[in-house]
Each structure stands twice: as C-alpha cells, then as structure tokens.
Design a binder for these strands. Structure first.
Lengths: 229, 229
DNA sequence: CCAAAAGTGTTTCCCTTACACCCATGA
DNA sequence: TCATGGGTGTAAGGGAAACACTTTTGG
C-alpha cells in the first residue's frame, strides 16, 4: 500500500529570487515591474514556478535568468513561505533564494532589461504578496552571514580600494566602522592581494587597489572563518 | 492575463520532522518505522503531506502529533529538499523542520507509541530517501544554534544538575568542556536558579539542583545572547 | 578510610576597541 | 598653500581558556 499521495494535495511551488547588489555606495536590491496579472504594474521579486524536471536551485537560476538576463549566480536558499492566502490566485508555496552580485559585472545583461531595476534598500516600494517579508528576512540573513564569513568577492569590481570594501561592509551592516580597525581585521583574514596600482579618482593622493586572493577567499568562505564587526 | 499557473506544474509538498531529544547522556533523534510502502519496514523521519488549508508550520505540528502523539512543540523550519528523484513514487519536494524536546516530558505521549523510537545519533540507521542528509543538516544547524543562544530548557527535566547541563552541551557539540569554565559561562548568562535541593543519585556528596528562570531564559533566547563554547 | 563526584578562583593571553596625526597631490 | 581623502600603530580592557586541589559521605 502506498499512502498519502493524493492528487488533491498537490500545490504550486514558486521560487522567488532576492538579488542584492552594491553600487559602491548603497546596498541595492533588484526588482521587476510585473507586466501581467495579478498585481500588474506593481513591483516584485523575480519569481516563477518550479517545473517537474528541475530542483529548486535549478528553478531559481532559470527564473533569474529569464527575467533579468543575469546568469551564473550562486544563490542560497533562504526560506519557504506558506501562508494559505499568500497568493490570491491559487494555493502557492514559495521558496525564496538570495544572492549578492556585482552590479557592474552584470549591468550589460541587465541593459536590454526586461523591466528589472535596482532599488536602494531604503527606497524599496511596497511589493506584491509577502515579498517585503521575504526581503527583510534576506537582509537579516545577509547581515548575519557577513559577520561570519568574508564577503565582497561577488559584490565589488575585480580591483577595488580599501575604502570601497569598507563602504560595502558599512552598507550591509548599516553602521559605521573604524578605518584602522577595519583594515587590521581584513588583513588578519589574509584574503586580499595589494596591487601596485592606485585608483586616482577618489583623491589627489590616490589609493592603492586590492584584489581578492580567490583561493584563500574560497577556503575561508567554506570554513566559515569568523569575522565580527 | 494571469501567467504561469499551469496545473501540470503542481507538486506534492511533504514535511519531514527531525526531533532531537536528550536522555541525560546522549543526544538522540526520534524515528519511525514505516508500516506502508514505499520502503516499508525501513526507518524514517516523521513525514506527511502539506494540506491545502494549512501552512508548513501547521503541517509539521500535525504530522508530528499524528505519528508520535507529541504535541505543543515549537519546530523551526530547516530547509526544502527538491532533488527530482528524491521520492521514487512521485515528484515530491520536502520541507524539513526540527525541534529539540525533553524526552521524559514526552515519554508518556510516546508510550502507546505508534512505531516511534529514539536513536542515539551514533546509531542512526540508514533512512529512506534523503532523510540522512536532512538529519545531518539539522545536526549542523543545532550545533550552530547552540553556540549562539542558550539551550536546554526544552531538553532537560525541570530540575537538573549542573553536570547534566554540561553533559547536554557536550553531547550537542560533541566535545568535552572544562567544568569550571562551563559553570562560569553559564552563570554569566544569568538564566539559572539554584535550588536548595540536592540530587543524591549521582554521588555520595550529592549535587545541587537548578532550574531555568523561564523569563530570563526566553529573553536571552530571543535576543540571541551570545554563548561560545 | 577510600573511592567518586562536587565544588570552587586565578592567571594568562588574545582579541576587540578606542583613538590622532602625518602624507601626498591637484587645484 | 590648502583642502581632501589616504595611510598608519598602540594602549587598555574584557572575555576565553588553561589549570589543581579540597570537600563530602556512603560503602
């Protein structure tokens, strides 16, 4: 006997993607304006339905790519939302994913752009369904993650200044950090390579550029090297 | 126009519950022996299908209660598993939940017991589907949580000795802790009340019993008071 | 009187934090 | 020459970890 598999219990399973980006100044999130019902015209996360032949991870990647042109992003599963009436059209459970990406690097993909637009976190509009709740949960998770393992590789241009990295951390954590302590902390992580080049755009003196040491960075990532700020 | 809602995409959404308990010595997990196909006779987590009129949280509580008699447990959502072939009968996504409970307190419920049985973590058999993977993920999460906020209220009898509490932490973290440092740490959390009674079963001298100060405990819980061991 | 577990403080070390001044250069 | 951001080190304080001996009492 096989129990429990009753077709009446089948549901729609959606996937919604929360994509964070960093423009050098603010932490932003990618949203799209819906051009279909329900809630046509309102802003929302990138969402779609799980297909029968793909995993949730696959679906998240496909949906993000279809709606924004962005591809090759590692997204992490966040949470599954299941309020009975969260979607007014049909019973739909949604599993949310989030990722942080380098805005510049993906700008080209976004240019011919599908209705997608970056919003600073402080200017996010009211979103459809429970998407604001999803976004808030993603922000909290991102902050926690930032305190636990290094971040930035995905968010900064290949070469960046120490100030840019600090701006990133300050934007994510939403607090100011001491310049010297920050540098000491970052150096102690041993994931940066100091270049001989300087960026001359930000000051008369110019500031040295850095890049991530990808091998070391990945190692620290997976080992959840502890960074508290 | 309403796009995307195509009935072919509907899937079964299961919920699986990982219940940890502590017997004073070892960390254990509650499993049931399936009395139905597929995989009849094999051990598994407590699982069932999401119904149309309930949230995932509701479903987890209902399933746990139906299969084990245990009720009034706060479970936390862990992760949604979606490998295409994870369930050989039909495409099924499973959202897992986990909780830690006091074995003694729920023993009565378990006595007339449905096929449920406690297994020490080191003696967990091969489980159906991807349930071993779920369990491992839950253990990792439990360990991390234990390092971040106090734990024990749900797992120990109302009155307990300091040694029992230390045993609990050692079982969860799977490492030995220094007795004096442990006591200092716990005292600094200020969540215990020392009783005048002694437990005389464990030694000739006897050891003082403690209980949790529920108000303070809950406060620390929600504030994610930091405890590193 | 002895075995077995309970109980108890101090020191060291490292990480975190706070903090201020000089440097280089283009305008 | 001056305004602007870049770059640099140290001292104090607090939490974590290491560590050993005395107490109690039933058998």
């Amino acid at each position: 006997m096989v129990t429990g598999y009753n077709s009446n219990d089948k549901v729609f399973l959606a996937v919604d993607c929360i994509i964070f980006g960093f423009d050098g100044e603010n932490l932003e999130v990618l949203l799209i304006q819906r051009d279909f019902e329900p809630e046509k015209g309102k802003w929302s996360l990138m969402g779609g339905f799980l297909k029968n032949n793909e995993t949730l991870d696959d679906a998240a990647a496909r949906i993000l790519h279809n709606l924004t042109g962005v591809h090759d992003i590692y997204m992490e599963q966040l949470y599954s939302f299941s309020e009975v009436d969260r979607d007014p059209v049909a019973r739909t459970i949604s599993t949310s994913y989030y990722a942080i990406i380098n805005i510049e690097k993906h700008n080209e993909e976004l240019i011919e752009n599908y209705n997608a637009k970056w919003f600073p976190l402080s200017e996010v509009p009211e979103l459809i369904f429970d998407h604001n709740i999803m976004l808030n949960k993603a922000i909290r998770r991102l902050r926690r993650r930032t305190s636990i393992s290094p971040i930035g590789f995905e968010l900064l241009p290949e070469k960046f200044t120490m100030r840019q990295l600090q701006n990133l951390y300050e934007a994510i954590l939403d607090k100011e950090l001491d310049k010297r302590n920050f540098i000491n902390k970052i150096n102690s992580m041993d994931v940066l390579i100091k270049l001989k080049e300087k960026d001359m755009t930000s000051s008369t003196k110019g500031s040295f550029l850095f890049k991530f040491d990808k091998d070391k960075y990945d190692e620290k990532q997976t080992n959840s090297f502890y960074l508290k700020l």
